[in-house]
Design a protein around this nucleic acid. Structure first.
Ligand code: NAD
Ligand code: NAD
Lengths: 213, 213
DNA sequence: CCATCTTTGTGCACGCGTTCACAAAGACAT
DNA sequence: ATGTCTTTGTGAACGCGTGCACAAAGATGG
């Protein structure tokens, strides 16, 4: 029986072994003292708890550059997610095959959701259409949304939204990058800012939305 | 002079005003007691501290479905990021224009990085090539990496890596989705974990820290 | 100049997640 | 069986972020 110890797993995952054991303990006591955890059983229990043992149909709305890339991505299927439908508002795309699957028109969005029992939707439309698409998805029964559009979606209680904002990912990297540069030339990294030198005009420029919900 | 109080900002952002004030205090104290914060100056200081006032050149390696979509994405430029180069290993792609920019071959990766002073790299290659690409980027001077390949990259100290794993995003949604279903039929046997109280709108936070690869 | 009012900046306490440390459980050898 | 050795499961300590509460700062008006 292939087993792993919490120590091995922790080292591989780069976390503390005690934390890992405590986490596992919330799922029940599946370990064997002096031996470790039965790999197969452990994987099953975790998968079950995370909801990976069932098949989740998802729809992708907005089959443009990003939507098409997502449709072609094979990594979803291997994790228990099945692309049930590709939906786009462009009539020219209707019927056109993407990733071996015909693109369907938004007119049929509601019926597609219902017929396939879809509860997870992916939004890859332009930002301007995102909220509208979101509303239709929710009205049709979708209760989880993965949003790629750079907009904050407002949804009713009970609906989960996760936003993937690549710009923010880059911003976080840039933040640390800036800090590294500052440390070398110990000049003005975390140094308190100078006095308000006539912010009459200010190099504010664009300045992104700083305070989203 | 347009101002905002910490109370107003906190309400808009849905956070505690004391926390907000304390956060601001780490940047220095430039609020005016009895009045609030000068909006323009505040925005500038935050942008500056986050590194948004400077221009960051980035390279994208692996111009396939995803890489091309990223190259075409206009959201980066508006946040201070400039795509300095597109790099791919496929000789057939060399010179071919993507997003109005010629794809360059990996042979020139090092010189491209150096000449453009790039410190942030995006990896959108297949998982198998990711580590190798990563090593070359790092050797060439890149110290921040945004990784889309479903692999854990190992890098030397001082190099930051952020991984965007879309499958995990879906898994998190599915996890909560399963929870919702379980709550309706309360008392579901086999369910050991307690519902994690949905702490506000935290993107993460409420998900078990350790997940199977 | 003094009184009052508003809002900041922060010391302090609380709560929660992480880590430590170890008794107990089980495997395995003798 | 009994002892040794490994690894789990968890109580307790620790650390850190969050929120409370309030003195101080500055504005404002008399
Ligand atoms: N491409 C990227 O790398 C990237 C990165 C981050 C975020 N995003 C965001 O993802 C979204 C899509 O990006 P993209 O590059 O694929 O854009 P795109 O313009 O290539 O594709 C958008 C697609 O959405 C469709 N569409 C428009 N309105 C629709 C509606 N109401 N219902 C259904 N479909 C509709 C269009 O027909 C088009 O096919 C954008 O909001 C973009 O900001 C993209
Ligand atoms: N498409 C998606 O939506 C998606 C989602 C999540 C993750 N990913 C991951 O992102 C990566 C790219 O996905 P994709 O769909 O664009 O794949 P893809 O096959 O369309 O593109 C990969 C590109 O990388 C290039 N490449 C291969 N080896 C290279 C090397 N050593 N150096 C430089 N370039 C190299 C290839 O020539 C190709 O152009 C994959 O690891 C995938 O798992 C993709």
């Amino acid at each position: 029986m292939p087993t792993v110890s919490s120590e091995e797993l922790a080292a591989a995952a780069g976390v503390n072994s005690a934390k890992l054991r405590k986490d596992f303990s919330y799922l029940g006591s599946y370990g064997t003292r002096g031996v470790g955890y039965d790999v197969e059983y452990l994987v099953y229990q975790i998968s079950r708890e995370l909801g990976l043992t069932q098949d989740w149909p998802v729809v992708i709305v907005g089959i443009g550059n990003l939507g098409a890339a997502l449709a072609n991505y094979g990594g979803f299927a291997s994790r228990g997610f099945r692309v049930a439908a590709l939906i786009d508002a462009d009539p020219a795309m209707a019927g056109k095959p993407v990733a071996g699957m015909p693109v369907q028109h938004t007119d049929d969005l509601e019926s597609i959701i219902e017929e396939n029992g879809v509860s997870i939707g992916v939004i890859a439309t332009p930002a301007g259409a995102a909220q509208q698409v979101c509303d239709r998805l929710v009205a049709a029964g979708v209760t989880s949304i993965l949003n790629f559009a750079p907009t904050v979606l407002s949804v009713p209680d009970g609906v989960d939204v996760r936003k993937v904002d690549l710009s923010i990912e880059l911003q976080i990297l840039a933040f640390h990058e800036q800090r590294k540069a500052g440390e070398e030339a110990a000049g003005e990294p975390g140094t308190v800012l100078q006095a308000p030198k006539e912010t009459g005009k200010g190099p504010d420029g664009d300045v992104p939305a700083v305070m989203p919900a």
